[in-house]
């Protein structure tokens, strides 16, 4: 008698459990799991207009190997990673450390530094494009005022990629600063009190206490910014006109993927690019997980 009551309770539990996760699982199935299979399948097909597809074997992947546009955009993407990651990590760490001191008004500073994080990248890219404008931009005016020479910042090969990187750094610092600040504040204050007694300077405390103990958070910041920088798109899309010659030396892999999929209507080839990028992201993330043992301090 007692046993039967228990199974009935179990059954209601099961029913509740399944029905509460069912809507989510259905959605994830349709919009996440099915697409994973679909994009992998499509990468082996030619998908043309009206989505008629024909078997292509490895042709899309072979094409990628000899496609200079693909290699160029891959090179650009790694340039973005190499410029953006160190600068973003450096500036967000410095600001987080400074905001962790007992200075007045740090709440206000924190609020201000975070503003770019809540504003849409499309709008931000537009104002920066206006600032960088070669004919009427305020930057050129200031540069000339200081005796320098004006540039078409966003169409010259030497500057376009760097400008996009600068905007991305400007956008990302506040977000990572907040995460790092939370990490720094999680460090037990006894360490600092002990260092204070020993007469260690603030700078010394930063390098011997803060920096090593914040490495787990630093690791998180590093992996997430690498993943997002490998997929850089919005700023390039909003700042570089599609027909500009600068597109070639600024476009990232995702930009190149987007143009193949939606401008050139080569959906099979675009799928292969997406798979390729996914593999790169996975490999780089795994590599970082491996390397973390060498520098991340866990106590």
């Amino acid at each position: 008698m007692k046993k039967r009551r228990l199974t009935r309770e179990k059954l209601t539990n099961w029913l509740w459990g399944y029905s509460m996760i069912l809507p989510l699982l259905l959605g994830l199935g349709v919009f996440y799991f099915y697409p994973v299979g679909k994009v992998m399948r499509d990468s082996f097909y030619n998908v043309g207009a009206f989505n008629k597809s024909s078997w292509a074997g490895l042709a899309n992947y072979e094409k990628m190997l000899s496609d200079s546009g693909m290699w160029k955009s891959l090179g650009n993407t790694f340039s973005y990673v190499l410029i953006i990651i160190p600068a973003t990590v450096f500036f967000s760490l410095v600001l987080a450390a400074l905001l962790n001191t007992k200075i007045r008004g740090r709440g206000v500073f924190r609020v201000i530094f975070f503003i770019p994080t809540v504003t849409m990248s499309a709008a931000i890219a537009m104002v920066w494009r206006w600032i960088f404008n070669g004919d009427f931009g305020i930057l050129n005016y200031l540069v000339k005022l200081l005796g320098g020479q004006g540039h078409y910042w966003l169409s010259e090969q030497a500057t376009a990629l760097v400008c996009i990187s600068l905007v991305t750094i400007w956008m990302g610092v506040g977000y990572n600063m907040i995460i790092l600040l939370a990490g720094i504040q999680g460090i037990p204050s006894v360490y600092y009190e002990a260092a204070e007694l020993d007469g260690a300077s603030k700078i010394r405390q930063f390098f011997t206490i803060t920096l090593p103990l914040v490495t787990p958070t630093l690791f998180f910041v590093l992996t997430t910014t690498v993943i997002s920088t490998l997929q850089i798109f919005d700023v390039i899309y909003m700042m570089i006109p599609a027909k500009s010659t600068a597109m070639r030396y600024t476009q990232s892999v995702v930009m190149y993927f987007y143009r193949n999929a939606f401008e050139f209507s080569k959906k099979g080839y675009a799928s292969a690019i997406a798979v390729f990028l996914f593999v790169i992201i996975m490999l780089l993330t795994l590599l970082q997980m491996r390397l973390q043992k060498k520098w991340v301090v866990y106590d």
């Binding site: 697409p35 679909k38 994009v39 490998l230 798109f233 798979v275 990028l277």
Partner: peptide, 10 residues
């Protein structure tokens, strides 16, 4: 799964 990977099939 990165979002750019899913956007085309979606």
């Amino acid at each position: 799964i990165p979002s750019s990977f899913l956007i085309l099939p979606q």
